[in-house]
Design a protein around this nucleic acid. Sequence first.
DNA 1: TTAATTGTAACAAATAAAGTTATATAAGCG
DNA 2: CGCTTATATAACTTTATTTGTTACAATTAA
Lengths: 146, 146
Amino acid sequence: MQTNGKFTVAIHICTYMHYSGKELVTSQQIADSVKTNPVVIRRIIAKLREAGIIGSIAGAKGGFFLNKPVEQITLWDIYLAVKENDLFYKPKPNPDCAVGSNLASLVDDSFEAAELSMKGALSNTNISMLNERLEKILNTEDMLSC
Amino acid sequence: MQTNGKFTVAIHICTYMHYSGKELVTSQQIADSVKTNPVVIRRIIAKLREAGIIGSIAGAKGGFFLNKPVEQITLWDIYLAVKENDLFYKPKPNPDCAVGSNLASLVDDSFEAAELSMKGALSNTNISMLNERLEKILNTEDMLSC
DNA sequence: TTAATTGTAACAAATAAAGTTATATAAGCG
DNA sequence: CGCTTATATAACTTTATTTGTTACAATTAA
């Protein structure tokens, strides 16, 4: 998986939670769908929780739930929630070189603008829409759920 | 460095080549500016060469040169030249799960649109502009070049 | 012919990401 | 209350990716 794998898994988590129709899903159930470990899922959910996208209930019969209307959970919200680094690597200054010592400030605006430009594309899609697309695909197939 | 480190270094390479004012620069000179190994530089240049951005001359007194007018080398051109993976991780389908088996096709359009949306921001800036910004900064400072 | 340089393969080291184990905490239920 | 199931999170291990290094063939100027 790449650096951005968390984003994709986070979308998977939200889509799965909505699609399942259950009020509460466990990290184990999600992990089965994603084919990974429950701890990996809980780590990503921790970030989605901080962002107010997911809520959790501890203890027996506990689990996770979507904490906002699915129409209001966009891919951009999820992107921001799980983002850890800037999109592009910020060069470390090399003080011995005119170019190397200033490169970061030269590209900073462009890098920020590029990342922000994705907002438009990613805000267009929300979890409700992903679920609609999914239902449409599944109506034309026979498919097992997990 | 992140996955996108090559992009930043590639910008550094082009900016350095133009700023140096030399007709030919060696991978060693660039490596000193970036603070890395000449082979690392040549690997990135190999991609910039494939994209027609940089040309090379082998042998003694050889080196690299910018193969296009600096006004026509945009950050988007460089991004495409050194890009190896898609911007976002494409989920591997999990055939045992309705969500997991279809997620890739659900997010594909959004992911592609997000990546393409950066074109606007990154096409706005070219190597000539970065050099102008650099000269402006250096005029107000005293700085060593390497 | 020698020295300097690119081009590239092969390998090593470092880094980052993901996966795993372990354990504390919380809550439902008999 | 004590057992079971679940989250929360820390610590550690494993794996994968990226970067760095070494080595060497090919090229060209002097």
